[in-house]
Design a protein around this nucleic acid. Structure first.
Lengths: 150, 150
DNA sequence: CGTCAACCGTTCGTGCACAAATAGTCAAAT
DNA sequence: ATTTGACTATTTGTGCACGAACGGTTGACG
């Protein structure tokens, strides 16, 4: 009797869906905290996306705008806005590609290179602060898992 | 000689900062993928934040707008926009709180309750798809680590 | 040679996210 | 009873993020 009642209840029972245990909800909150840490610690009100763009230019050197966007996981519309704001701060320079008139070549300006040099230790500290609740092994685990679902 | 050269190099060497290994950059990309999965699978062009709001209302019942925002990790300005869009779709209803004229009470509408019932299995499938590259134990680990840095 | 598919940058519209400022309301302490 | 401080919702402004559409360029292929 109890069994049949239980079984009948199961038939109509909703899936156990608890918002606070969903990976998407947790991802959003983790990123919110990271963004807040970034805004508090980074120089000159540079945002995380702007920093990603500068850091990638520092890694790979000059690059067409769209390709740069692919390197930092931004679509064409987004990278354009980011580059425009970096341009307004004179941290990057834009040149027409003489060999292909479709392309704009984006480079760090001298001020941009200087900024990156000063900001790298801060960016490292931001990462450290973001994962501060985790020990060294847990940090490695988290990076590995995130890389696999990205 | 080699040692002293190495040591001299270390003195001026920049911190090893590789963008693709930074937790913030990986978090953003993981969330981008989740958002894309969500947009592809969810009903009626409901976004992940709108869904979070509906699902939380389903969990806790009616709620003031600001408190609802705190439950779903959105500030007052953000939750207002989300509620406005849900209101335009007639998935929620708004009533003045008779006991406190500052408050607006947000509730699921009948259509909203119906939508949540139909969407819960889909939301569960979206979570499943997001963590599909991970096995059961890795999923648990990821949720635990994210919860600690959120 | 033409054309055609693939690529480049740009623009528009929608939707989060948050800081800061505003105005109204409430409760509690003086 | 007034004031104080906390809370409510709202508005404005800036910055991602992405889909969709556009026009221009390139290179390859028939």
């Amino acid at each position: 009797m109890i069994d049949s009642l239980t079984h009948a209840a199961m038939d109509h029972e909703e899936i156990d869906y608890v918002l606070d245990e969903q990976v998407g909800f947790l991802l959003r909150q983790a990123q919110q905290r990271h963004t807040a840490i970034f805004a508090r610690m980074m120089l000159s009100d540079i945002t995380a996306t702007q920093w990603a763009t500068l850091a990638k230019l520092h890694e790979i050197g000059g690059c067409s705008q769209n390709l740069l966007g692919r390197h930092v996981a931004m679509d064409a519309a987004t990278i354009k806005g980011v580059v425009d704001r970096l341009l307004a701060r004179e941290l990057v320079v834009v040149n027409a590609d003489p060999a292909d008139s479709r392309r704009l070549t984006i480079d760090l300006s001298e001020a941009g290179r200087d900024f990156v040099r000063r900001a790298i230790p801060i960016a490292a500290a931001i990462t450290e602060e973001t994962v501060a609740p985790l020990d060294r092994q847990e940090r490695e685990t988290l990076l590995g898992l995130l890389a696999r679902i990205k």
